[in-house]
Lab assay of single mutants.
Amino acid sequence: DENEERIRAFALYKGIDPEKARELWERGEINKDDEEKAWREYK
């Protein structure tokens, strides 16, 4: 689903483990601007 892809995109963008990215996502600790930037680059 799209959230999974967004988490993966963010992990790649930040160079972090996707599981770590998922934890940040679930806790609401992902910066929305960074997340959008990562998503645009990923697509």
Rank of each mutant, 00 (worst) to 15 (best):
K37S: 08
D17T: 15
R8H: 10
W25V: 04
E23A: 10
E29C: 15
A11N: 00
W39Q: 04
P18H: 13
K32W: 14
E36I: 07
E41Y: 12
R22Y: 06
E19Y: 07
R27V: 04
Y13G: 01
A38M: 08
R6Y: 06
W39D: 02
E19N: 09
A38P: 01
D17H: 11
K43C: 15
I16V: 06
D33W: 10
L24E: 02
E41H: 11
D17Q: 07
N3A: 13
N31M: 08
K20I: 13
N31W: 06
D1K: 12
A9S: 04
I30T: 03
G28R: 04
R22L: 07
I7A: 01
A21V: 08
F10V: 15
E36Y: 06
Y42N: 03
G15H: 08
R27T: 09
D17R: 06
D17G: 07
E35K: 09
E26D: 11
K43L: 14
E23S: 08
D34F: 03
G28I: 02
Y13W: 14
E2Y: 14
E36Q: 05
L24A: 06
A11P: 06
Y13L: 06
E36H: 03
E5R: 07
D1E: 11
Y42K: 04
E2M: 13
D17N: 08
R22H: 05
K37E: 12
A9W: 08
W39F: 06
D33F: 10
E36G: 03
L24W: 05
P18F: 15
E4M: 11
K20V: 14
A21K: 00
E29H: 05
E4F: 08
K32L: 10
K14H: 14
A38V: 03
Y42G: 04
D17K: 09
N31Y: 05
E36S: 06
D17V: 05
Y42V: 05
P18V: 15
K43A: 09
K20S: 10
E41N: 09
E26I: 12
K32E: 11
E23K: 08
E41K: 11
G15L: 03
R8T: 08
A21N: 00
L24Y: 05
N3H: 13
A9E: 02
D34L: 05
L12Y: 13
R27H: 08
E36C: 14
G28E: 04
D17M: 07
W25N: 01
E4I: 08
I30S: 01
R27S: 11
F10W: 11
I7E: 01
I16R: 00
E41L: 09
D34T: 04
Y42C: 11
R6E: 02
E5H: 09
K32G: 07
K32R: 10
D33H: 08
A9I: 08
D34M: 07
L12E: 14
F10S: 04
G15E: 05
L12Q: 14
K37N: 12
K43Q: 12
I30W: 10
N31P: 12
L24S: 02
L12K: 14
D17L: 11
E4P: 02
A21G: 01
E35Q: 12
W25G: 00
K14T: 12
K43G: 12
P18T: 14
I30G: 01
E41I: 09
E29T: 04
K37D: 08
D33M: 09
E29S: 06
K20H: 12
D33T: 08
Y13R: 02
R27G: 07
E4N: 09
R27P: 00
E29A: 09
A21C: 10
R40G: 07
N3G: 08
R6K: 10
Y13P: 00
W39R: 04
K14Q: 08
D33E: 14
W25M: 07
E26F: 11
E35M: 15
R6V: 05
E29N: 06
I16Q: 00
E35P: 02
D17S: 15
A9T: 01
K37I: 11
E4W: 12
D33G: 08
K14M: 15
D33K: 07
I7M: 05
E5L: 11
R27N: 13
A21F: 02
E19S: 10
A21T: 00
G28L: 03
A38W: 10
N3V: 15
A38N: 02
L24K: 03
W39H: 03
D1V: 12
N31S: 15
E36P: 00
E2F: 13
K14I: 13
Y13E: 04
R8D: 05
E41A: 13
E5W: 09
K20M: 13
L12A: 13
N31V: 05
K37A: 14
W25T: 00
E5D: 09
Y13V: 03
K32F: 10
A11T: 00
N31L: 09
A38L: 04
I7K: 01
A11D: 02
R40D: 11
G28M: 04
E23Q: 11
F10I: 15
E29W: 07
K43D: 07
N3T: 15
E26T: 07
F10N: 04
D17W: 03
L12T: 11
L24I: 07
I7T: 00
R22N: 01
N3E: 14
D1I: 11
R6T: 03
D34I: 06
W25L: 09
W39P: 01
G15S: 06
E19H: 08
A9P: 00
D1P: 11
R22F: 06
K32N: 07
N31A: 09
E2H: 12
G28F: 03
E41R: 08
L24T: 01
R8N: 09
G15F: 01
W25P: 00
Y42T: 05
R40V: 10
R40I: 12
D33A: 11
Y42L: 05
E35L: 15
N31C: 14
E5K: 09
W39L: 07
A11K: 00
A21E: 00
R8W: 14
L24D: 00
E2W: 13
P18W: 14
R40Q: 13
I30M: 06
Y42Q: 03
E5Y: 06
A9G: 01
E4Y: 09
K37G: 05
